[in-house]
């Protein structure tokens, strides 16, 4: 059961990612990318990593993609007139992919596959213990890196100084 679901979802992920790369319209590309993130989250769930699945949805599909959308709309790259023309044909594939993901979620929920092997399941407690005990220094490095990425972005993004 899980094996079938895995292969189906893997195909969905690959199609979603390939379409995200090849799609001309940025908003459509983002929709495909969100699709691929969702099916990836399902794969993580099937691999008894519900926490990572949650992160995938909240951080990637949620926060990062919303940021992308926001930037696209702020810079007005969306070309709305172009996007609305052949509505159904454009949206058939993402709806199909999304439908597959939805069906797989329902299947998992109905069959009560909490996760294939509960004993291997990583709880949020285990995760944070490993993160802060073993990789505490890594977190410090990442936070420093973000600080300097912000410094660099602020420097390069400042108004031109013609002196």
């Amino acid at each position: 059961m899980e094996a079938y679901l895995f292969y189906i979802l893997a195909v969905v992920t690959v199609i979603g990612t390939v379409m995200a790369i090849t799609e001309q319209h940025p908003v459509h590309a983002i929709v495909y990318l969100v699709t691929s993130f969702f099916s990836l989250a399902m794969i993580f769930f099937l691999l008894s990593a519900p926490l990572i699945a949650m992160f995938e949805v909240i951080i990637y599909a949620g926060a990062v993609m919303v940021l992308f959308m926001f930037v696209i709309m702020m810079l007005d790259l969306g070309r709305p007139s172009e996007a609305s023309r052949p509505f159904l044909r454009r949206w058939a594939l993402p709806m199909l992919l999304g439908g597959i993901i939805l069906v797989s979620i329902v299947t998992v929920a109905v069959n009560h596959i909490s996760s294939p092997d509960t004993s291997r399941m990583i709880s949020i407690n285990d995760f944070s213990v490993v993160l802060f005990r073993k990789y505490g220094v890594a977190i410090e490095i990442i936070s420093m890196q973000l600080l300097f990425a912000v410094v660099g972005a602020l420097y390069l993004g400042r108004k031109r100084d013609d002196r």
């Binding site: 490095i141 890196q145 300097f148 990425a149 660099g152 420097y155 390069l156 031109r160 100084d161």
Partner: peptide
Amino acid sequence: VLSVSLYVLAGFNR
């Protein structure tokens, strides 16, 4: 950490 700083340094002369 190295790369992010270097990207900015390479483009430093804005």
